[in-house]
Amino acid sequence: MRAEDLDLDALNSATKYPSILTYHELGPSGGLLENATAFSGDVILTEKVDGTNGRIITLPGGDYFLGSREELFYARGDRVWNRKLGIVEALRPVAERLSATTEGIRVYYLEVYGGNKITVASKQYTGGTALGHRLFDVAEIDAHILQQPLARVASWREGGGQYFHTEDALTEIATDQDIEMAPRLATIAASELPTGIDEMQDFLTHHPPKTLVTLDQDAGGRPEGLVLRATDRSVIAKARYQNYERTRQLRAKQR
């Protein structure tokens, strides 16, 4: 499979990362509602890093593409590339050393953070312009989907057509490819998760109290929040400090 033989619009669509719902449902005013995501069994808590989503798309034979959540920025061998968000700068060295898949398309999803104001939270990770990246998911894509019309590719993706690896498989891939993962904080029983908004905000103050992925000693160190994952990845949700703080503020105004 060669990069030049692919429909790049279809490849871009098929490999986009799906949206993750908030742990508590987001209401129309921007505040959270008292409807918590239902989990069962064990739940893995990982740090949510505040950066920009990057993709490394690998093909059989060694070709690869790099992109953001919405766009493709670079293909292996390009002499000029899109420098937006520092994604190529951060991920090209990783992509160059990845082992090629033997069949199908593999997508590595990484959070690229820090840098020169990638997000308003960049200063929480670096006091300068250091760039970091952490792996948070890996998916396998059947190349046959790229032969479908774009609308069908998008529908396939939104319907859960991408195959994401379980926690155990993800950990094994990260180890084999020597890529650091988003920090794993704890594994708890679903029954231990707080279901109320106030209780979840208190829970966030301890998980983690300080980010584990600072890039230098001058970083602010405030974490963004948590991602909660079932071990088989059948359920995944995010909990951000900002959402809970906004909800508390909105409630205060209504009193």
Rank of each mutant, 00 (worst) to 15 (best):
Asp232Pro: 04
Gln217Lys: 13
Asp168Trp: 01
Leu185Trp: 01
Leu226Asn: 07
Ile173Gln: 12
Phe164Lys: 01
Ala151Val: 14
Ser191Phe: 01
Pro209Lys: 08
Thr231Ser: 11
Thr214Lys: 12
Ser191Val: 10
Ile145Tyr: 08
Met181Cys: 13
Gly221Glu: 06
Glu158Trp: 01
Ala169Pro: 00
Ile197His: 06
Ala189Asp: 13
Leu228Ser: 06
Glu172Gly: 00
Pro149Phe: 13
Asp178Tyr: 10
Gln162Thr: 11
Thr231Trp: 00
Ala182Thr: 15
Leu193Asp: 08
Thr214Pro: 01
Leu170Ile: 09
Thr187Gly: 04
Leu193Arg: 02
Thr214Ile: 11
Ala190Gln: 05
Leu226Ser: 08
Phe136Asn: 05
Leu204Ile: 03
Leu135Cys: 09
Phe136Thr: 06
Ile179Phe: 09
Thr231Tyr: 01
Ala190Ile: 04
Leu185Ile: 11
Leu146Thr: 07
Leu204Trp: 02
Thr211Asn: 02
Ala219Ser: 06
Thr211Ser: 15
Leu215Cys: 05
Gln147Pro: 00
Thr166Asp: 14
Arg184Ser: 09
Met181Gln: 15
Glu140Ala: 14
Ala189Ile: 00
Ala182Met: 12
Ala219Gly: 13
Met181Val: 12
Thr214Met: 11
Arg222Gly: 01
His206Gly: 09
Val153Leu: 10
Lys210Glu: 14
Ala190Phe: 02
Glu199Gly: 12
Asp142Leu: 04
His165Val: 13
Glu172Met: 06
Glu180Gln: 14
Leu204Pro: 07
Glu172Ala: 15
Asp202Trp: 04
Gly225Val: 02
Glu167Ala: 12
Phe136His: 14
Arg233Ala: 09
Ser234Ile: 03
Ala230Trp: 00
Arg152Gly: 00
Val153Met: 09
Ile145Gly: 05
Thr195Val: 10
His165Leu: 15
Leu193Tyr: 04
Pro209Ala: 08
Thr187Ala: 11
Glu167Lys: 10
Glu199Ala: 14
Glu167His: 11
Leu226Ile: 07
Lys210Val: 13
